[in-house]
Every structure is written in C-alpha cells, then in structure tokens.
C-alpha cells in the first residue's frame, strides 16, 4: 500500500552506490567516533577495553564550555564576515563581462596553489610585532607599543576569513551567475530602490548559494586547529586544538573522541537550524523580509 512496497526493485540497485558510499565513508566513521568516545583509554595510546562515560563526564567542567563558546563565536564571526565580503564579490563576478570574470576568478583560486600552512605562516610575519601592519598602525598612531596583533582572537578571525573566503565566494558566485538580473530591473521598475531590490530580490534569489557557502565556511572553522595554533596562541585555543592535543600529546584517543562528539553536535545543531529555516522559507514572504 505504501510507496515503499510498490517501489520497483530496480530502484534499490540504482541507489546502491550512494548507499554504500554514505555507509562506508560517512555513517561507519561517525559511529566509530561515537564508539571510541565511550571506551576506556589505553596507556599505550590505543583504545582500551570496556565501556565508560567518563570521557564525556570529564568535559563537563567550565574549561570545555569556555572553549566551545570561543569556537562557536569565532566560527560564526568568520562565517558572517565571509558572507558580507563574498556577496558583493559574487554579484560583481556575475555582472562583469566574461574576460574580466575569468581574471577575477583566477584571483580567487590562485592562492590555493600555495600550501595552506605556508599561507597561514605568512600571516604570522604580517601580523608580527615587527611586521609591516603593526609598524604602519604605530606610525599612524593607531597602535601603541604594547598592542599585539598576533595571538589574539581577532587574528584568528582575520586569518580564518582569509583562508575560507573562497569557499564562500565560489558557491555565491555560482548562484549569482544563474540569477536572472531582469528581476532586479522589475523590482526597480516597481519602485524599489537599489538596496531594497538587492535585499528583497537578489539575496533570496541566491539563497542556496548563501546556505552552501555558509556551511562550507562554518564547518571547517568549527574544526580548525592550525590557524588558532599559529596565530591565536595558547589563550585562544579552539576545540580543534584540544582534540589535536589529546591525540598527539596525551595519546588519549577516547578523550579526543569525546571532544569530537561535542564538536559534531555543535556542527549538527546549526545545520539542523539551517534546514528548518530553509523549509520555513516556503511560507509566503521568504526568508529575508
């Protein structure tokens, strides 16, 4: 009676590859992480025998909450700043002629050809107390001798925005490139000023690109540990740093697993929120009103 019983058997074959893919590469690893988080640590750095909830219990302290909070706000700030920068860039990319479009897209993509690690290290030099930015700010009287650009939460956000901006620009550009700009003319024609037309017609028109970009930036920022390690310093550690320490320093895989579970829940929560919002946008009026 249900659609499932009447489904032709061939459909199972057609969906088998993606089913296997998701099971082997997504579901199983996720279950493994959850399982490891519930095992006892092994003193040799492996996974011990027996089940325990102690790893999760150990995270209940105020230290974890502080780090989780810092991870969340730095990731959120990174995502929002990336969106604010990428929307105008995507708009311009979609509006310029093909020759300029290729050149500008190259500017977005070319930095990827240098190692991520090297690019982050380069920021250490740029933001260094003896570096060019600090000297310029000092010369302008905007920074005193004690002001530190490096090893601050601001530095983590700045470098994260730099590192993840292309992941925001590309999906927004892809959406803007498909956007029918005659709709903007229609909005202007009906009496909307530029900004109103942009807000009520263009942004909803590229919302899929916005959501994709948001997830592409938010998820890696939440797990990021190289950037806070290099430009954040010990007082700006994020969850990613803690996980790395548990794995590489303490050799306590179950504890790292427990932290990963916390991080995973922190990722799934905004994802679920995004999906609910996306579904609600089908109500009259849309999202951005």
């Amino acid at each position: 009676m249900t659609a499932a019983t009447r489904r032709p058997p061939r459909e199972g074959l057609l969906t088998a590859p993606s089913f296997v893919w998701l099971t082997v590469l997504f579901a199983l690893p996720t279950i493994l992480v959850f399982a490891i988080a519930l095992r006892n640590p092994d003193p040799d750095g492996g996974i011990g025998a027996g089940w325990t909830a102690a790893n999760l219990g150990r995270l209940a302290g105020p230290g974890t909450a502080g780090i989780l909070w810092r991870t969340l706000w730095i990731s959120a700030a990174t995502s929002l700043i990336c969106t604010a920068l990428a929307v105008p860039v995507g708009y311009v990319l979609a509006r310029v002629g093909p020759r300029w479009r290729v050149r500008l897209l190259m500017l977005v993509v070319v930095p990827f050809w240098t190692s991520f690690l090297i690019r982050v290290f380069a920021w250490k030099d740029i933001l260094h107390p003896e570096g060019p930015v600090k000297r310029l700010l000092a010369a302008l009287g905007l920074a005193g001798p004690q002001t530190s650009l490096l090893y601050s939460a601001g530095a983590v956000v700045l470098v994260s925005v730099y590192a993840y901006l292309p992941f925001m620009i590309l999906p927004i550009y892809a959406a803007a490139e498909k956007f029918d700009f005659r709709l903007m003319e229609a909005a202007r024609d009906l009496g909307a000023r530029r900004w109103r037309a942009f807000r009520t017609v263009f942004l909803p028109g590229i919302r899929r690109g916005l959501w994709t970009g948001l997830l592409f930036v938010l998820i890696p920022s939440l797990g990021s540990y190289i950037i806070p390690d290099i430009v954040g310093g010990p007082s700006n550690e994020l969850l990613g740093n803690k996980i790395a320490q548990r794995v590489f320093v303490d050799r306590n895989l179950p504890q790292a697993g427990a932290l990963s579970v916390v991080l995973m829940l922190a990722v799934i929560a905004p994802l679920a929120a995004a999906l609910i919002l996306e579904r609600r946008k089908r109500r009259p009026g849309g999202l951005f009103r």
């Binding site: 029918d180 005659r182 709709l183 003319e185 229609a186 909005a187 024609d189 009906l190 009496g191 909307a192 000023r193 109103r196 009520t200 017609v201 909803p204 028109g205 919302r207 946008k281 009259p284 009026g285 849309g286």
Partner: peptide, 25 residues
C-alpha cells in the same frame, strides 16, 4: 510600469507578494 516579455515574476514570492511588491516598496 513594465510588463516584461519573460514576466520577470519574483520566483521566491507568492502571487500575492508579487502583486504587493510595488505598494510595499
């Protein structure tokens, strides 16, 4: 006001919101 060849209706809005657009603006 223009009636466009492609109509240029706002795809993310309902009929009602499309019609209301000018007055809301």
């Amino acid at each position: 006001n223009t009636i466009f060849q492609s109509y240029a209706l706002f795809p993310h809005m309902t009929v009602r919101d499309n019609i209301a657009y000018g007055l809301r603006a």
